[in-house]
């Protein structure tokens, strides 16, 4: 009952705030909402776009559920996505000619997850060995990862002739992930995302590890008294989050762009942080919030075309949602 009231309050406040903002800009909110609707539900093609955003958001958010449960702020998730994409691109460049496409795609997948996990573990090691807060190490590693991507695009992996912001040369068409005729997204990836979601839920419901990380996140001093390894769980959760972030990077490189581009992460790491925060660190609402965010993301692309509005409006609405939720939840808790 309380939860329903919280949700209704959030929806009411954020809708009103958004309408208010739109009216100030001089746009009819009804037009904007119908544009969002058209951009996402009007056709199969549009909805396929939404799914293409939903898949990486869900995968990445699941990883963050583990770190957030431990009380870790894995801001470095952006960099972990980029490293996943770098790993993928490296395999594509060096192995694509040597083996058959399926094997290459498989190796690239493992490489992406591995690099993501290593990048995340670096933050974890800095935390437990040198007491560097994961927010700072994460931010730092994000810059390093971004620099690495840019260096690769403009240096060793530049397009023959001229280096450009549009990224490296596309991967050979043989190693593009196969998509059935007319689908516009891969059913295999969709199944994989659902599988990740299911395994995450299962870990939290049924496994001892899921319980232990919630325990450490809730009270690390009591965890110590109960003989639960704190540092070990930090590293493991970071590695799992990095693994899934790497998977997100793989998706971006292999399904969406077919090459390495500077903005390869599409900010999905930061967006996933918002998804999980909005979900109040629980797994149940994650797929639905990810769907809402994906719709806002895709729908906002329509805005410049039909209403001459900037597409960043989608981001504004996402921001309003998260801030209202946090505000309302904390207000409820305090009163």
């Amino acid at each position: 009952m309380d939860r329903v009231r919280t949700i209704l309050t959030v929806v009411a406040i954020s809708t009103l705030t958004t309408c208010g903002a739109l009216l100030i800009v001089g746009t009819n909110p009804v037009d904007v909402f119908s544009a969002f609707f058209k951009g996402t539900f009007s056709s199969w093609r549009h909805f396929a776009h939404v799914i293409n955003v939903w898949i990486p958001l869900v995968i990445c958010s699941c990883g963050l559920l583990f770190t957030f449960s431990l009380g870790l702020w894995n801001i470095g998730v952006e960099g972990q996505i980029m490293l996943g994409a770098v790993g993928t691109a490296w395999v594509m460049r060096h192995l694509a000619d040597m083996t058959n496409p399926t094997v290459t795609l498989g190796i690239a997948f493992l490489m992406a997850c591995l690099l993501g996990a290593i990048w995340a573990t670096l933050s974890g090691i800095l935390k437990i060995k040198s007491n560097v807060h994961e927010i700072f190490s994460g931010l730092g590693l994000n810059f390093v990862a971004q620099a690495l991507v840019l260096w690769l695009i403009f240096g060793p992996w530049k397009r023959p002739g001229v280096a450009s912001m549009s990224g490296t040369r596309p991967f050979p068409a043989a190693v593009w992930f196969p998509v059935p005729e007319g689908w516009r997204f891969s059913p295999i990836a969709l199944v994989a995302a659902l599988l990740v979601m299911g395994i995450t839920a299962w870990i939290f419901i049924s496994t001892r590890w899921g319980l232990l990380i919630r325990a450490v996140g809730n009270n690390s001093r009591a965890a110590e008294v109960h003989g639960i390894s704190i540092n070990g769980n930090f590293l493991l959760a970071m590695a799992v989050a990095g693994f899934l972030a790497g998977m997100t990077g793989y998706y971006q490189a292999v399904f969406v762009y077919h090459r390495l581009i500077p903005a390869i992460s599409s900010n999905y790491g930061y967006l996933s942080l918002l998804v999980v925060m909005l979900a109040q660190y629980r797994w149940t609402p994650v797929p639905f919030i990810a769907l809402l965010f994906a719709m806002l993301h895709v729908g906002s692309i329509q805005l410049p075309l039909t209403l001459n509005l900037d597409s960043s409006l989608g981001g504004v609405i996402q921001g309003i949602l998260v801030l209202t939720t946090l505000g309302v939840v904390h207000f409820r808790r305090n009163s």
Binding site: S206, T207, R208, W209, L211, L212, R214, A215, N218, N219, R221, A222, A223, V225, H226, I228
Partner: peptide, 27 residues
């Protein structure tokens, strides 16, 4: 007790699972 002994936001059942769940993967 709350600062060092117990997990304030975890249920009583969670506490028993931590203490008596043994080392099996599944609870």
């Amino acid at each position: 007790r709350l600062a060092e002994g117990l997990f304030p936001d975890l249920s009583l059942m969670d506490h028993y699972a931590i203490a008596f769940g043994g080392s099996s993967w599944l609870i």
